[in-house]
């Protein structure tokens, strides 16, 4: 359970104050599939970063499974990012000189209890996203869709509860976008919480829950149908 209570985030840039998030109160239960949409600058990514413990709320509280994140040290947050969350980015963010397998192994470097056979665990994840035969390929030798699948395998490798994806399809064509979304939906059906940030309406409308942000405020929460995809629940409080 992810629980945000009156979360605000303000950036000051010289004399400018940018209120990236205002009065966000949100409850996201396990197994939810949530899309966050909104215009550029509406605070989508800031919200995702706070959910993923990359950033701390400026004010307000964020609890993960009942634990207040403001009580955690930076190392504590790093451990949460490693274990509880898996990140997927628009530009894939793979290490260009590492092959697919080595990229997937990276989270184990920072894990408190990595598996005994990390390569086999990474291999399994690559097979799960359909890249079992591309493990030795460098990112440059893979298509965009394949690279994003490597990134998803990397996000999954520590068996996190929550997948956070920031515009995961933003750099991909329509067909490949759909494939990536299908993978995410499948993960959700297996029990993962999936939260994606997107500005593409076609993508958002396939998600069980769609939260719309505008100027840092949560202005709308919809269930466009397709509710059977998700067991979880989202509530704007």
């Amino acid at each position: 359970m992810l629980y945000l209570n009156q979360v605000e985030k303000v950036y000051s840039n010289g004399s400018n104050r940018i209120e990236a998030l205002q009065e966000i109160s949100l409850k996201i239960s396990p197994h939810t599939f949530l899309a966050i949409q909104g215009k550029s600058g509406s605070g989508k990514t800031t919200l995702l970063n706070i959910l993923g413990c990359l950033d701390r709320p400026g004010s307000g509280a964020y609890q993960i499974d009942g634990e207040d994140t403001s009580l955690k040290s930076d190392n504590g947050l790093a451990a949460l990012r490693n274990k509880k969350f898996g990140f997927v980015f628009q530009s894939f963010n793979l290490m260009p000189r590492f092959n697919a397998l080595e990229n997937v192994i990276i989270p184990f470097l920072y894990s408190s209890n990595p598996p005994g056979r990390p390569k086999e665990a990474a291999q399994q994840m690559l097979e799960k996203v359909g890249l079992g035969d591309r493990t030795k390929h460098l990112p440059g030798e893979l298509s965009g869709g394949q690279q994003q699948r490597v990134a998803i395998a990397r996000a999954l490798v520590n068996n996190p509860d929550v997948i956070l994806a920031d515009e995961p399809t933003g750099a991909l064509d329509n067909q490949t976008s759909q494939e990536i979304l299908d993978i995410l939906a499948e993960l959700n059906s297996e029990g993962k919480t999936v939260i994606i940030v997107t500005h593409e309406k076609d993508i958002a409308k396939q998600c069980p829950y769609v939260l719309t942000l505008s100027d840092g405020r949560a202005i709308d929460l919809k269930q466009p149908g397709n509710g059977n995809l998700s067991n979880g629940e989202v509530a704007v409080l």
Binding site: A78, K83, N93
Partner: peptide, 16 residues
Amino acid sequence: IREIGLRKALGARNKD
């Protein structure tokens, strides 16, 4: 810098 940001997102602590 992006690589370092990524490593942090994947759970690297400051001392890592």
